[in-house]
């Protein structure tokens, strides 16, 4: 297995955004935002409601392309004009609503739109084996059969399937939008540990969360947005809970953030 040196500055970031600006009509949502995500690290994206987190994610995923600024992926300039461009680069976004099909089973969901074929028919056996292998590679033991329908799964298990989809397609960057928002405690812990394991496999993970405990439990870096501006991107080990809360609520705190 490859060993990663996650916190070294010499590592090329997977995603490197510089001076990103985005307006919806006359409303300017993102002002000159810089954001980086490194391989093997979890970068937490925090900010109050309306700070621009979701907009930034939509820019990353090409759902709403940015207006101005530089988008670099693995060190090279990239053009992401639509979600397909993002998928081609290896960016997987797990949305809050997960975008899973309730009436299909786990294997069908994992391969949705990208099914394996053998001649004229689908190669069900290969897909099933690959799905089981991916889930066990993530140390997911609680799932049971991979032929269960999504509608029979709990919230945490659904989240796991959505995350496994990212692993299956060899993504380089996974963005998780509030993965623990609707989960119970035990399931939240499972998902947090899964997030950590993704990063340990060398992926760059971006985690959006409002829960400071979750952010501090799994992240290596914290990026704080305040009213559409990136006020700080710091190492989790260097900041305290209070500083991050101040950054979120006032855009400044403990010598970090905006100058007054």
């Amino acid at each position: 297995m490859a060993r990663w040196e996650p916190l070294g500055m010499s590592v090329t970031p997977v995603l490197d955004l510089r001076g990103i600006e985005k307006s919806y009509g006359s409303v300017k949502v993102l002002h000159d935002v810089c954001f980086t995500a490194y391989p093997g690290e979890v970068t937490a994206l925090v900010g109050d409601n309306g700070a621009g987190k979701t907009t930034l994610v939509k820019c990353i995923g090409g759902i709403h392309p940015h207006d101005r600024g530089e988008y670099r992926f693995e060190g090279r300039p990239a053009r992401v004009g639509n979600p397909r461009d993002a998928a081609a680069l290896g960016i997987e976004i797990v949305h809050q609503d997960l975008a899973l099909c309730e009436n299909l089973d786990i294997v069908q969901n994992l391969f949705l739109g990208r099914e394996r074929r053998r001649g004229l028919t689908l190669d069900e056996a290969a897909m099933e084996a690959l799905a089981a292998e991916t889930l066990s590679g993530l140390s997911v033991r609680t799932m049971g059969s991979v032929r269960q329908r999504i509608s029979n799964l709990s919230g945490g298990q659904r989240q796991t399937v959505a995350i496994a989809r990212a692993v299956l397609w060899d993504s380089r960057l996974v963005v998780l939008d509030e993965p623990a928002a609707a989960l119970g405690v035990a399931q939240t812990q499972q998902v947090l540990e899964l997030v950590r394991r993704l990063a340990d496999r060398g992926l760059a993970v971006v985690l959006i969360s409002h829960n400071m405990n979750d952010v501090f439990a799994v992240s290596d870096r914290i990026a704080a947005l305040y009213l559409g501006r990136m006020v700080a991107q710091v190492r989790t080990a260097d900041v305290t809970h209070r500083q991050v809360v101040e950054l979120i609520t006032s855009g400044t705190g403990g010598g970090l953030g905006l100058r007054r």
Binding site: Q189, L192, N213, D214, F216, A217, A237, T240, H241, V244
Partner: peptide, 28 residues
């Protein structure tokens, strides 16, 4: 730890020396 991670990290950030704390990872 998962229920109090923010506080644990805060104490670590203020209580430990910068050099050894730089690379330490906290895991479950």
């Amino acid at each position: 730890y998962l229920g109090s991670a923010a506080q644990v990290r805060s104490m670590l950030a203020t209580g430990a020396l910068a050099a050894p704390r730089e690379k330490v990872r906290l895991r479950t």
